[in-house]
Design a protein around this nucleic acid. Structure first.
Lengths: 107, 107
DNA sequence: TTGATATTTGAACAGATATTCATGTATTTG
DNA sequence: CAAATACATGAATATCTGTTCAAATATCAA
């Protein structure tokens, strides 16, 4: 296995990407267009927020290459970027669902 | 594949965990005790921060079950929790290293 | 017990950030 | 052209969060 974290810049990029996923609204936006491409307004409606806020978040997700964008007429199609995003979310779900919690602690 | 994100509470827990990984200092702490258990002071020295700050972060990582703790005399051994953490970091690294960036954009 | 080491905890502050609202831009339709 | 639709953008703000410092706790040694 390759050592992770030896590169300083890489840690910066990684944390930036994790940080983006660390907001409930933004994660719901990403999940909304995980399996199928969607328009901004549809995402906004599905998540239950304004189109403006949706656009703000999509811009950040796009800059981090977590979603890709494509114009269709006057609408914009957004979809989750690559399969690593999917895999990462899968591992995270597996971690959260982890059964053998030797000690639970309320924050 | 199982659908992700249908459960509201699960999204909350997942974002909370992602948020913890989204801080450079905290991620470096986690990386420091990824492959071997380490004492707080050693982690602090390795990362280059105070023991106090290290302890603050380790408490959060522990609450999210990202690390496990074990007392050894008057020292505390911390180590990354399960293999999902490793897998998740691997997928994230793969995403960041992704070659086919169709369009780069500066934030 | 007293002192030293290792870690934890709490409060306070400074900086970051998600959200809202108003405005601007692009694209299509009449 | 003008009007309408769909997004994007910028500024302002209220909240959150990482960090520091001081003090507390725990464990061991003498």
């Amino acid at each position: 296995m390759r050592r992770i974290g030896s590169d300083q810049d890489q840690v910066t990029v990684i944390t930036e990407t994790f940080r983006l996923l660390g907001d409930p609204t933004r994660l719901r936006i990403l999940l909304a267009c995980l399996f199928e491409a969607k328009y901004v307004n549809d995402v906004a409606t599905e998540v239950g927020i304004s189109a403006s806020l949706t656009s703000h978040h999509l811009r950040l997700l796009r800059a981090a290459r977590l979603v890709r964008a494509e114009r269709q007429g006057r609408q914009m199609l957004y979809v989750a970027a690559d399969e690593h995003v999917n895999g990462m979310l899968g591992e995270m779900v597996a971690h959260v669902r982890h059964p053998d919690a030797e000690e639970e602690e309320s924050v």
